[in-house]
Design a protein around this nucleic acid. Structure first.
Lengths: 125, 125
DNA sequence: TGTATCATTGTATACTTGTATCATTGTATA
DNA sequence: TATACAATGATACAAGTATACAATGATACA
C-alpha cells in the first residue's frame, strides 16, 4: 500500500490518509480481511505523529470500513451484506431485545433493571 | 460451554469471557465441581491469546467463583458466594446492555430505537 | 518404592498496539 | 493585537500478545 502525504497541502493529513486508504480499497490494493499497518508503523513511514494515523483509522472505523482493536491491530472489514428488508431488520431487532431480556433475567435482574442498565449504557457513550 | 467472542466489539475480550462464564453458571451449563477448559485450550478455541483467558479466570477466581491452581487446572467452586459476585453480576448486566446496543447499531438502529424495541418486548410479556 | 524426566497447567514480565487527554502550532477573524 | 478554533504532537494509559518460568501430574525404570 502506497500512501503519499503532502504536508504543504491545505488538506489535513488525516483526510489525506483517509481518502487514500479508501482509494486503495476501491482499486483492490487492499482487500477485506487484510491487516493494516499499525498506527506507529504507518506514522513513521509517513513521517507523521501516530495519533494522526490513529485519527484517520478512527474515521474509517466509524464508517465501518476498517475495524481497529486495541492491543491487536486494525483490519479491513468484510463489506456489509446488502441491506435486508426493513421488516426483516425490525424482526431481528426485536429478537435481540428479547434475548437481552432473557439473558439478564437469567442473571437475576428484572425487566426494569434491564431497561435501566440500557439507559445507563446509553448515557456513557 | 459455548462462548462467543466478538473481536470487533468495544467490550474487552477479557470482560466478554468473564460475563459469559458467569452466564453459563447461571443457566446451569456449568456446575460446581466442573473443571474448566485450560487457559490454552479455551484460548485456541476462542482464537485469543491464552493470557487473556488467564486474566478472565483470575477475575473470577478473585470473586470466589472459580478456583485456579497452577499445574492442576481451574474448577468451578462449590459455593458460588451470591453476594460476593454481586459486583460481577452488575458488570455482566452492563456488558449485556452494551452488546445489545452494539448489535442493534450494526443492524442500522440507533440507541433510541433500541430502547424502544426493548420497551415493546417488555409490553408483550 | 523412589526418582528421573517430560508433559501439562497456571504465572510473571516485558513488549506491542490502539486510546484518552492535554499541550502546541498555525491560521482565520474580530 | 487578541482570541478562537482546527490540526497535529507528546505523554500516559489500557488491552492484548509473546516468551520464559514455576508447580503439578504422568510415566518409565532402577
Amino acid at each position: 500500500m502506497k500512501i503519499q502525504i503532502d504536508l504543504r497541502s491545505d488538506i489535513p493529513v488525516t483526510s489525506q490518509i483517509v481518502t487514500q486508504i479508501q482509494q486503495s480499497l476501491s482499486t483492490g490494493t487492499l482487500k477485506p480481511g487484510d491487516q493494516m499497518p499499525t498506527v506507529r508503523a504507518l506514522a513513521t513511514e509517513l513521517r507523521v505523529n501516530f495519533n494522526t494515523v490513529a485519527r484517520a483509522y478512527r474515521v474509517l472505523d466509524e464508517c465501518g470500513i476498517i475495524s481497529t482493536q486495541q492491543g491487536r491491530g486494525t483490519f479491513i472489514m468484510e463489506q456489509p451484506p446488502p441491506e435486508a428488508s426493513s421488516a426483516l431488520r425490525r424482526e431481528a431487532l426485536s429478537t435481540l431485545a428479547r434475548r437481552y431480556l432473557e439473558e439478564s433475567q437469567r442473571l437475576g435482574f428484572n425487566a426494569e433493571e434491564s431497561a435501566q442498565a440500557l439507559e445507563d449504557e446509553m448515557e456513557k457513550k
